[in-house]
Design a protein around this nucleic acid. Structure first.
Lengths: 214, 214
DNA sequence: TCGATACAGTACGACTCGTATCGTAAACTC
DNA sequence: GAGTTTACGATACGAGTCGTACTGTATCGA
């Protein structure tokens, strides 16, 4: 019935939430195919408006208009506004910091600074708005699965790697450590404060990484 | 013209944002006085709905209805929804943890746990929503001034006190420390995780407070 | 050619916000 | 007690956006 479900990423998103993606190779559905340029135009417009005016002020109409498509074309690809922004952020990928780095502390600092500069503001607004979203408990949970947790997992891997290489104390609870590091970014956004220079390095130092500077 | 401004707290809130309060003693304005019971009924209803259904789903109508007043009565006291929730939270006061305690580390842990249990969820939602609020930059800034910063200042005072008494390393940047401690709460809310038992104590430990356990 | 789907454009219902207006009620002043 | 001033309940209104449904046209495969 609704092609949104039919072609949804089969395993990544159980249930109704998945964005349309990845046609099974060779099996081309009948009828006129989707304009993939339109899809990227939509997600890119969404990301730009997310940064420029924020999630709430980004309307489906304005995104469609900027992408040069009709509103219905957006709804054909994305269940609703939450799904759109989740998919758009997902496309952007996880911020840097190689997990296999031999200098995981530096990679962790890089990850944190990129997160601070490019993702935190949106994250607070989107998740904050989704928490209160009318009834859409599913949209919030899906956003966490697709956006938040992969980034948390990435940061955690960096912490663990740093512990293995002795750049962070082995006694540290990596989960709590990640929460404190990324959380400090949220705390500044909530309070409306600017991040001071080299904050990330100093934050990692606070966890006992004074020795392993790189 | 608008009695909202005329009687607004004169110094606490510069500009248009202040809630009506505190009539100058002796100087009673003409006409029928405000029903103060209605005011408390409104703020209490707002707080209850904030906890139960969240900020977005809490409508002015539902608050007025639960308080047993007309919507206009709410708007006579509070400029808008943001002003209402800010005033309501403000009335609840800053969570515990005596700044002058001789066991500031314990007080800090208590503050963090109360913050985690009673304030964090609302805080993320309200600030997140306000960040994206239509045009209302002022409402966000006012919420930060009246709600966020007093609590940050309180936590900071506890950290400094702990440093003075040797329960936390004097080398710690208290601002960053507070951001990491309170931020970890936000991080869990964003990720949708439960706080594990004694997380606050372990978080403080991570900052080098292992010695000063109480 | 035919069927199926995408697309632009548009209209619609639903919801809540914040404002305005009505008549009535409650305080103070003269 | 009459008049003034403001609060109050009730209600209507405009504005904005969401998500849905429907048109007619365009583009694909069979």
């Amino acid at each position: 019935m609704t092609p949104l479900d039919a072609t949804a990423t089969p395993e990544a998103a159980p249930g109704p939430g998945g964005t349309v993606d990845a046609a099974c190779p060779g099996v081309r559905p009948p009828g006129r195919p989707r304009d993939e340029q339109a899809t990227t135009a939509i997600t890119e417009a969404a990301l730009r408006q997310l940064e420029e005016v924020g999630y709430v002020r980004m309307s489906m109409e304005s995104v469609a208009s900027e992408a040069g498509v009709a509103r219905a074309t957006v709804y054909r690809r994305f269940r609703d506004k939450a799904d759109l922004i989740t998919a758009a952020i997902e496309r952007r990928g996880v911020p840097g910091g190689d997990v296999r780095s031999d200098r995981p502390r530096a990679a962790l600092v890089a990850f944190l600074e990129e997160f601070d500069q490019r993702f935190a503001e949106s994250c607070v607004e989107v998740v904050g708005t989704l928490i209160g979203s009318r009834d859409d408990r599913a949209a919030l949970e899906l956003h966490r699965q697709r956006i938040v947790r992969p980034r948390v997992a990435h940061a955690r891997a960096l912490v663990v790697r740093a512990q293995e290489l002795g750049e962070l104390p082995a006694s540290l609870d990596p989960d709590l450590a990640v929460q404190m590091l990324t959380g400090s970014v949220f705390a500044r956004r909530v309070a409306g404060l600017e991040s001071e220079r080299s904050w990330a390095s100093r934050a990692v130092d606070m966890l006992g990484g004074r020795d392993g500077d790189v």
